[in-house]
Amino acid sequence: MSPLHDPSSPAYKKANRLFKKATKHRDPLLELEWTPFRAAEKKFKARFPPPDLSDVLDLATLDPGREQEIQQGVWHGSTTVQYTRLSKNAYAVPHIPGLVILPSFIAPEMQRDLIRWSLSEQARHPNETNLDIHYHLPQNGIWNTWLSSRKDPIDITIEPKATQEFQANHEPPGPRKLINNIPATPDTFTSISTTPKPPQAPSATVKPAFPSELIHKLRWANIGWYYHWGTKQYDFTKGKGAIDQRLRNLCRDAVATVDWKQVYIDIHANWGEDEPGWMSWNETYGKYFVGHQHTNSHFF
């Protein structure tokens, strides 16, 4: 058992004291302003108190061969959550229509290929990464630059974007401002599209760094439509980025794996004037777009 799961452990008592101190002056009505997504994020990403996973489906518990792995782990889910087994490796959760779980869908070798591709080909110009906000990155990307420096050791320094003038005049750090946007719908598309999305301010504290120092700080690279983290909205003015063919094929394969009649046959929803999109996904999905479904479907 993890010390944070044992109320009698010193680690638990210390974490509890820090938690009470940090939340002592928190507005009790703050949580009422959170969206459902934000509320779930705050619940399951919380370090303390440990999140309650009794209502979380844990597919690992269905595999007797993973019993030792589960015992050695920290977080344990539940097998009592209602689910439907669509096939050998596909599960649906009835109370969340459209949610399909494909455990271990991507083979280990393909996972390695995707990792190599994402670092060398996707995390580079013109696709933005989390480091582009703060540094003048080389166009071939931080990963490729680091590999080159290993083969031919030279002092390559990545300069920060914040100038000395900016560092002197930037606002002091403070509590992070939470953003609670209006839901995205066809009716609010114009409003979202016209919301100003100025470039995010670079950090005033970062220093020039070597590629070997920054490679460990690379967190994400944009794929498809550009997501503006400052406003938590998509910036459609930048256009749609190209989707690599290997990702398109992966999405098509995932859709083709599922028998969508089993997922939606008992769901009575207002599909509008058109027939439900899922009825022809196996033929149309990925032909004109990737990653955008007509209904609320997700893959894990």
Rank of each mutant, 00 (worst) to 15 (best):
K14G: 02
D113T: 13
R116G: 04
Q200A: 06
N180Q: 10
T61M: 05
L57H: 07
Q245G: 08
S149L: 00
L247M: 11
G224N: 04
D132F: 06
N130E: 04
W260P: 11
L218G: 03
L4W: 10
Q122D: 02
P126A: 10
R248S: 08
D132G: 09
R38H: 15
G77E: 03
K151E: 12
P7Q: 04
L18M: 11
E213Q: 15
P172K: 09
S118D: 07
I70V: 12
W260F: 13
I106C: 12
S203V: 02
V56A: 09
L114Y: 11
K197F: 00
L62T: 03
N270I: 06
I179F: 05
K161I: 02
S149I: 00
V74S: 13
A46V: 01
K207E: 09
L29S: 15
E159Q: 15
T257M: 08
M1T: 05
F289I: 07
T295P: 04
Q139P: 06
I142L: 12
P94Q: 00
E283G: 04
I156D: 05
P64R: 04
G174F: 07
P208W: 01
D63I: 00
P64W: 01
H298P: 05
I115K: 06
W117S: 09
Y288S: 14
L218F: 04
Y83K: 08
L250H: 12
S104F: 11
S2N: 14
N249V: 02
S149C: 05
I243W: 00
F105R: 12
A107K: 11
T237D: 13
T80G: 10
Y264P: 11
C251W: 15
R219S: 13
L4R: 10
T35L: 04
P51N: 06
R116V: 08
A168S: 14
N140A: 06
G239K: 01
F105V: 06
T145A: 11
W260V: 10
S120T: 08
E33Y: 13
V56F: 01
G224R: 01
N140F: 08
K207F: 00
I267E: 14
R252Y: 03
E69V: 14
P10G: 02
N169L: 07
G141V: 00
A60T: 09
S280Q: 09
E41D: 08
V93Y: 07
T284E: 12
D63V: 00
F236C: 01
I243F: 00
D52Q: 03
I101P: 01
F19L: 00
R252W: 07
P172Q: 04
V56L: 05
G291P: 12
G277V: 05
G230H: 01
T231H: 02
I101K: 01
L18W: 11
S87H: 10
N144F: 00
Y234P: 11
K232T: 03
Q82E: 11
E41H: 13
K24W: 07
I192F: 01
I179W: 03
K207N: 06
E33L: 15
